[in-house]
Nucleic acid binder design. Structure first.
Lengths: 215, 215, 215, 215
DNA sequence: CCCTAAACGAGACGGTACGTCCAGTCTTCAC
DNA sequence: GTGAAGACTGGACGTACCGTCTCGTTTAGGG
C-alpha cells in the first residue's frame, strides 16, 4: 500500500487572508485524538461535541470552525485508522487476501471503529455530503487495496489481465463489496470473531468464485 | 420460507397477574406503524420518541411502558418488514440465490430500513441486550433462509449433504455473512444499486466458490 | 368549646339508591390518616394522591370517589386537628386569650398543619369552592372560640354587652383576624416561636386595645 | 420609606471570572415580569416554568441558570412589588398606621401577590433557604416600615423612647406580626375587604393596646 | 340462594410539566 | 482574527403525577 499518510488536519482550508492569529496546528490533532478517546469510552451515541472539545483542551467554537458537526468529526477521526491498512506482498493472492481480511477485521474490532462506522454510515443514508466524505476518507482507501491486490496477482500470473475496462471495474467493485461486506457483517452484525479459520474459508470461497468470474 | 408472521407486539410481557386494566392491543401496532412512518419521513436520527407517540395517538408514557427507548422500538418496528422475506422455489439454486439477493436488496432500499438498520447495529455494539434483540428479531429470520435454500438445493441434488454438522453450520454462517454482507455493503456503504446484473455476477461468484468449499 | 367532634367522613354523600356494595367505612379514616402522615413526612408539595392511596391501602379510584383532589383531601385531613382547639374557662379573659393563643400556636407548630394550611389557603384564592370548604371546616371552628370567649367574658362582667349586633359581629371578626393573623404570621412567616412571653405581650396589647374599642 | 429599589436581578452572582459571554441583563427583568403576568392570569399552581420562559422570550435553560425553581422565581418576582410600600408622613401615628394598613391590603389584593404569597410561605416551611430568601426579599422590607413609623412617632412625641433595646425590638416584632398578620388573615383567609372602616377599627385597637404596652 | 348493582384493587390510559442535557450559535475579553 | 469561556435558543429526553378509564373481584341487600 502506498500509505498516503494523509495529514491529520485537512479539516478546512480557511486561510482567507493571512490576517489575524493563525490557527493552532496542534488543535486538529488533539481534537481527533480526543474524539477517538471519547468513542472508545462512551460509544458513538454518548459522545458529545462539548465533551470532545473539553478533552482536547479546546473551545467548542474552535471545533465548530473546523468541522460541521459530530458526523464529520467522527468520520475524520476514524479515517486515520484506515491508513494503517496495508497490503504486504505475501507471495500469493490467497495469502494477500487472508492477510487483508484479518487486518480489516482487526481494525473493525477496535472499539472506536466498531461503534462509529455503522453510525456514520447510517447517518449518511440521509446526507449526501457525509456520504461523499465517507467515501473519500474511508471507502476509497480500502478499495485501492483491491485494485492493488489484483494488479499484483496479475503480475504474478495468478489472474488474467482483463480486456474490458468496464468489466474490470465492475468486478473490482463486486469483490470489494463481498470482502468488506462479509467482514463487516461477520464482525458487527453476527458479532462473531474473524479468526484465521474463517479467513481461510472465506478466501477459498472468494478465489474459487473469482476464477469462475474471469472465464 | 415458513413466514412465521410473529405477533406484532412482543414488546413486553408484564402481565404479572390478570389484575388491572389490560394493555391496549391496538397501541403496539399503532406505535410500530408510526415508528416506520416517522423513519421514512425523518430518518433515524431525527425520529423522536415523542413524535412517534403523537403519530400513534398514544401518550409517551404508554410507549415507554412497552419499549425501553428508541433503539428497541426501531428494531421491533423494522423487524416486521423482514417477515416479508421469502424464498420461493424457482427450480435452481442460482435462481433462488439471485431472487433472495434482489428481495433483500429491495428491502434495504426501503427508506425505513435504510436509515434504521445500520443505526441500531451501531448502537448494539455497546448494548448486549439490544444485540440479542436484533439477532432474534432480524438476523435469525434471515439466516433460516440460507438453511432453507441449502436444504432445497440438496434435495434437488445441486449440493451434497454434508457429513460434519459443525462444518455444515460453519459454512451456513459463512454464506450468510457473505450474502447479507455483500448486499448491505453494496446498498448502504457503496450506495450503488443491486440490479439484476450485479445479482447475477454475485451469484456466479458465490456458487462457484461454494462448490469448491464442498470439495 | 362545644367539641362538635364532626364525623371523620363527611367526604361525600353518594347513596343514590341503597343498592350495591356500601362504601367502606374504614377507608375514609385510613385515607385522612394517611394524608396527615404523608404531610408530616413529605410536606404539602411532595404529597401525591397516589402515595396517600397506597399508604391508606386503598386504590386511587376509591380516594377520588370521595374527594375531588389533593386540596379538598388535605383540608379535610387537617380540619380534624382543629377540633382539638378548646377554650377551657380559666377564670379571666386574659387567661383565656393567652391559653387559646398558645393552643393555636401549638397546633400550627405541628408539621402537618404547618405545611398544609398556607398551601390550601393559597389554592383557595383561585377556587371559591375550596374557600368555602376551608371556611366551614377550619375557620368557622376557630371563630366560634372568639364568640364563646366573649360571651364568657361578658358573663363575668369583664366585657360589656353590646347593643348593636352589627358592631358586635364586626368586632368579633376584627378580633378573630387579629388573633389568628398574629399567631399565624408569627409562626409561619416570621418563623419565631410563640412562647408564654409573646402570648402575654400579645394579650396585653389585644385586651387594652379591645377595651378602647368598646368605648 | 427609603425606597431601596433593589436591583431587579440579584438572581445569582456567578461571575466566576470575567470570562465568557455575560448574562443578558434584560433577561432577568423580562423573566420576572413574565412571572408576574403568568401569576395574574393563571394563579400560582397553574404557572409553569416553561410557560414563564416562553412569555419572557427566553429558553428554559436560561431561566434555570438563574433560579433554582418556581419558588425562588416567584419570591423574587413578587418581592419587587413590596418596594412600592412606603410610609408617607401623614402627621400622626394613627394616620400613618391606617395608611400602611390600606396600602398593604391593596398590595395583597393584587392578583399576583394574592395567589403567590401564601404558596411560597407554605413551601418555605420545608425549605430553610427559601425561608431566608422570603425574609430578606419581602419580610424585612416590611418590618423596616414598622421601625420607621415608630421612630417618627417618637420624634413627634406620640410614643416614648424605650430604654431597653431588647424590649424595643420585641415590641417591634410583636407589632409587625399583629399588623401584617391581621391584614393578611383578613384578606386571604377571611377573604373580606380591608376598607377604611376596618382599617380605622384596627388602628384604634392597635394604638390603644400599644399604649398599654409602653407603660 | 342467587341476582343485581355498586364499590373495590390494580394498573394502563392520555396528558402536562418537570428538570436535564446537548446541539449549534453568539458575545465577550485576551492574545 | 483566533482562541477560551461560557451564555444563548431550541428541542428532545425520560420521569413523575394527574385524574380517568377499564378490567376482574368482592360484598352487600332484595327477590
Amino acid at each position: 500500500m502506498v500509505a498516503v499518510m494523509h495529514s491529520e488536519h485537512p479539516s478546512a482550508i480557511p486561510q482567507n487572508g493571512r490576517l489575524g492569529r493563525p490557527r493552532s496546528v496542534e488543535a486538529d490533532g488533539a481534537i481527533l485524538r480526543a474524539t477517538r478517546e471519547a468513542l472508545v469510552e462512551l460509544g458513538w451515541s454518548k459522545v458529545t461535541v462539548g465533551d470532545v472539545a473539553t478533552r482536547a483542551g479546546v473551545a467548542k467554537t474552535t471545533l465548530y470552525r473546523r468541522w460541521a458537526g459530530k458526523n464529520e468529526l467522527v468520520v475524520d477521526a476514524v479515517a486515520v485508522l484506515f491508513d494503517e491498512l496495508e497490503l504486504p506482498d505475501l507471495g500469493s493472492l490467497a495469502a494477500d487476501v487472508e492477510s487483508v481480511v484479518l487486518r480489516f477485521a482487526a481494525l473493525l474490532d477496535r472499539p472506536e471503529t466498531r461503534t462509529a462506522l455503522m453510525a456514520v454510515v447510517a447517518e449518511a443514508t440521509r446526507d449526501e455530503a457525509l456520504r461523499r466524505r465517507i467515501r473519500t476518507a474511508i471507502v476509497d482507501r480500502q478499495k485501492c487495496l483491491v485494485l492493488e491486490g489484483r494488479a499484483r496477482a496479475q503480475a504474478r500470473g495468478e489472474l488474467p489481465y482483463e480486456d474490458d475496462p468496464a468489466a474490470a471495474a465492475r468486478n473490482a467493485d463486486l469483490i470489494f463489496d463481498v470482502i468488506a461486506g462479509a467482514v463487516v457483517h461477520r464482525t458487527l452484525v453476527s458479532a462473531e470473531p474473524v479468526d484465521a479459520g474463517w479467513a481461510r474459508g472465506f478466501t477459498v470461497l472468494l478465489l474459487s468464485g473469482l476464477a469462475s468470474l474471469q472465464r
